[in-house]
């Protein structure tokens, strides 16, 4: 299945963030909340089981100056293999002049899934982006398939963060220099002007990025532990 969806949010003359373009294509179904206010709330609903092997999904999100978008998932995403054995892919592009918060539910990389997920975000001078990602290596008692995630965020073309993570290689997943045998990895990228002090515990930390912004990372054995750490920041 190939699908491409687009969401554009802008600011109206009354200071409300409004959805100007909403183009869904199954399984990428965008559901705006019926409310008027400074922040537009849109749910991203997977309307068909996806991603399956062979799927290619693309979502583009644009947020204009002064506008604010809260983009949420509604359920955990299960990455599954398809009948053909082909890999699946997803690309999520943000173009932000206002502010975006994207906090999807966890993504579970099931056994034999083979997926590539790319997130690209370009911010202008004062734009803000909060991006959370929680990956789970396999369902209970299951080893993970292969997943490559890549996040690249730039501000006015200059790189703020570029991280690729490959899971599903047992020798690296189990290494103390890889994922240390933890089943859940969570990150929260905060690109804004809020100063946050470095902090951390045994398997989590909050660090300032070199060119501005903050990254929180947590490793754990279950989703509850990891999301609790990210929620507390």
């Amino acid at each position: 299945m190939k699908a491409s969806a687009r969401l554009v949010v802008g600011l109206d003359p009354h200071g409300n963030s409004v959805v100007r373009v909403l183009r869904s294509q199954s399984p990428l179904t965008l559901v705006p909340a019926r409310r008027v206010g400074p922040v537009a709330l849109v749910h991203l609903v997977s309307s068909v089981t996806s991603p399956l092997g062979g799927d290619s999904l693309e979502l583009t999100v644009e947020v204009g100056p002064g506008a604010s978008l809260d983009l949420r998932g509604v359920a955990a995403t299960l990455m599954l293999p398809g009948p053909t054995g082909l890999p699946s892919s997803s690309v999520l592009r943000f173009s932000v002049e206002g502010s975006v918060r994207y906090v999807p539910e966890p993504t579970v990389v099931t056994s034999r899934a083979h997926h590539t997920a790319v997130v690209e975000a370009e911010l202008d001078g004062h734009a803000e982006l909060l991006l959370r990602e929680v990956l789970v290596l396999g369902r209970v008692g299951e080893s993970a398939g292969t997943l490559s995630t890549s996040v690249r965020a730039t501000r006015c073309g200059k790189p703020l963060l570029h991280q690729q993570l490959v899971v599903g290689s047992p020798s690296i997943d189990s290494s103390a220099a890889g994922l240390a045998g933890k089943r859940v990895v969570g990150t929260s990228l905060m690109l804004d002007a809020v100063p946050r002090a470095s902090d951390g515990g045994e398997w989590w930390n909050v660090v300032p990025l070199a060119a501005g912004g903050t990254l929180a990372t947590a490793l754990g054995d279950d989703v509850v532990t990891v999301t609790r750490v990210l929620d507390a920041i």
Partner: peptide, 18 residues
């Protein structure tokens, strides 16, 4: 030009400083 990260190594490096 790779972009591979290692979350555990990052956590270990910061914990070492603390």
């Amino acid at each position: 030009l790779p972009a591979l990260g290692s979350p555990a190594l990052d956590l270990l490096a910061e914990a070492h400083v603390r």
